[in-house]
C-alpha cells in the first residue's frame, strides 16, 4: 500500500477568541506571537487513518504539504507519529492560491510522486473551513472520492469507508486508487513517541518548487482565484448575561426553575 496524506499547517483552532486578531486593512489574520501553528486536526486524523492501515497491512505513508519552510514542523510531527516520508511543495507563485489551485498543486505533486493506492485528506482545514481541496484533488486525478470518513479499511484491494452523515452512517466500497477525507469521528490521533520524534528530527524533507512539479502558472496564485475576499471581520455575538444569584443553591435553583417554567413548551 502506498498512501499519501495531504496535511496543512493552520492557526491553532483552539486559540481563545481573545487572541484572535485580524488586520482589517489587509483582510488577514494576525497570528499571535508565541503560539505555534499546528497541523490541521483533521489532517492529523488522516495520518492516523493511514497509520492504522499500515499497522495492519504494511505499506508506506508519504505526507505532503504546500506551504513555506515553516511547515516543516507539521511534516516532522506526522513523521514522528509514524509516517515514512515527508514532502513540502513550496513556491512564491503559489501565494494566495484558492482551493482549486491548491488542489491542482497537490495533484501535480502527487503525479510526480507517481505511485499511490490511497490518498487521504482532512474533511476541511480548520482555518478557512472550506472542505473543498480533497474533492478537487480527486477530480484532477480522476479518482473516486468519499468524504467525512470515520473508518477506512483496505480489504482485497478495495477500500471500505464508513462515513458519518448528519443522522447516521453510510458504508461505501471503492476501487483503488481512491481519495478519502477524514472526519473527527475517526477517533484520536496518536501522540508521537520519543523515539518517533528523534528519528523524525533528522529526516530529510525534500522541498519541491513549482517548476519541479510542472506547474501551469495560469492555474495558481491570486490571479487564478475564482473568488475574492473583500472583508474579514470579527463578529460580536455578545448578549447581556444576567447572572442568577442567591443565598445558597436552593435559592438559585428555585429562581432557575421559575425562569424555566416561564419558557418551557406547554403541550
Amino acid at each position: 500500500m502506498e498512501i499519501i496524506v495531504c496535511i496543512k499547517q493552520i492557526l491553532d483552532p483552539d486559540l481563545p477568541p481573545a487572541k484572535f486578531m485580524v488586520d482589517k486593512e489587509r483582510n488577514k489574520v494576525i497570528p499571535p506571537e508565541g503560539i505555534p501553528f499546528v497541523i490541521n486536526p483533521y489532517d492529523a486524523l488522516a495520518v492516523e487513518a493511514a497509520l492504522k492501515i499500515k499497522d495492519e497491512k504494511g505499506g508506506k505513508i508519504t505526507v505532503i504539504t504546500i506551504g513555506d519552510k515553516s511547515t516543516e514542523d507539521i511534516v516532522r510531527k506526522a513523521l514522528a507519529m509514524g509516517a515514512d516520508e515527508g514532502l513540502i511543495i513550496s513556491d512564491t507563485i503559489f501565494e494566495e492560491s484558492d482551493s482549486f489551485a491548491v488542489g491542482y498543486i497537490l495533484a501535480q505533486g502527487i503525479k510526480k510522486i507517481g505511485r499511490y493506492d490511497l490518498i487521504l485528506c482532512g474533511r476541511q482545514a480548520a482555518d478557512w473551513d472550506n472542505g473543498v481541496v480533497g474533492s478537487v484533488v480527486a477530480e484532477y486525478l480522476g479518482i473516486p472520492i468519499v468524504t467525512r470518513a470515520k473508518d477506512v479499511k483496505v480489504v482485497n484491494g478495495r477500500v471500505n469507508v464508513e462515513r458519518v452523515t448528519t443522522d447516521g452512517f453510510e458504508t461505501f466500497e471503492l476501487e483503488l486508487p481512491a481519495l478519502i477525507t477524514v472526519s473527527s469521528e475517526l477517533g484520536q490521533a496518536r501522540l508521537p513517541s520519543g523515539w518517533g520524534i528523534i528519528k523524525a528530527a533528522s529526516k530529510e524533507i525534500p522541498i519541491w518548487s513549482g517548476k519541479e512539479i510542472e506547474t501551469d502558472i495560469s492555474k495558481v496564485g491570486k490571479k487564478a482565484s475564482r473568488n475574492q475576499l473583500m472583508r474579514l471581520i470579527i463578529p460580536s455575538y455578545e448578549r447581556r448575561c444576567e447572572f442568577i444569584t442567591g443565598e445558597d443553591l436552593h435559592e438559585i435553583s428555585a429562581k432557575l426553575t421559575s425562569k424555566l417554567m416561564e419558557r418551557r413548551i406547554h403541550e
Binding site: 506571537e33 508565541g34 505555534p36 520524534i197 528523534i198 528530527a201
Partner: peptide, 25 residues
Amino acid sequence: LLRAKFDLWMAKQVEKAGAILATGL
C-alpha cells in the same frame, strides 16, 4: 519579555544549533 514568545525563540536557536527538541513528552 513574554515567556511564551521568548521561550519559543530560544528553543528555535537550540534546534538551529543542532540539538533535538522533543516537546509534548
